[in-house]
Amino acid sequence: MNAAAEGSGRRAALRDGVLAAAGVPALVLITGYLGFGALAAGNGLSLPGTVLSTLLLWALPGQLILVEMHTLGAPFALVLLTVMFSAVRFLPMTVVLMPLLREARERPLHYYAAAQFLSMSGWAWTMTRFPDMAPERRLPYFLGFAGTLMLAATLATAAGFVGGDLLPKLAKLAMVFMSPMYFLLLMTGEARQLMARLSLLCGAVAGPLLHLVAPHASVLAGGLIGGTVAYGVHRAWRNRSARLGAR
């Protein structure tokens, strides 16, 4: 393929990514980020920091942890540690995505840039489509898709923050309430595997209980305790059914 045709092929892939994102995927994220913006405004935080968190963290769970823990007055290092723990999942996600992107042999810098755009929704979407896509189309498609999502989410964060501030008090509260509702539906809807359901249940019990004892450390400690119990129960149950099966 000559250089001009390759360039237009890349532009077409980028455009396809933008068009694929500008629909249900963007609407789902907008729903989450509108509520997040309103919640941050309701907690009395600043607009620039809140919008910046969407661009820099690009992970709504981490952003919610940051906003809630900071509002409770948790120490800087503990907030950072908790947010970082919630973000470890990006390591295996990137590891799984990279071989599919790398088939086209782009410059390494492009992959490090693409990693910042990776989110759970962009990952799930592209992972199912990449195997049927020509390798050289994948990176521009991914950047078009994920870039559109990030733009929509950034605008929604600002709109939720400003909108929440402008609305009358009761309407603002309703908008703030949309943020936990987004996670409630997203998590219960996505948790199809037993291990994920156990983690949800154990975390939902451990979080509020630990909040009564140690409010600043409750997200991290509740996650470690609830997640470890869920992992242990699932593992014991799996080993037991494996033994019964082998008998």
Partner: peptide, 17 residues
């Protein structure tokens, strides 16, 4: 797998709180 459980439990705990 364990890290995934902890991350899920963290955000579930925060929402329930």
């Amino acid at each position: 797998a364990w890290v995934g459980c902890v991350a899920f439990a963290m955000i579930a705990g925060l929402i329930s709180r």
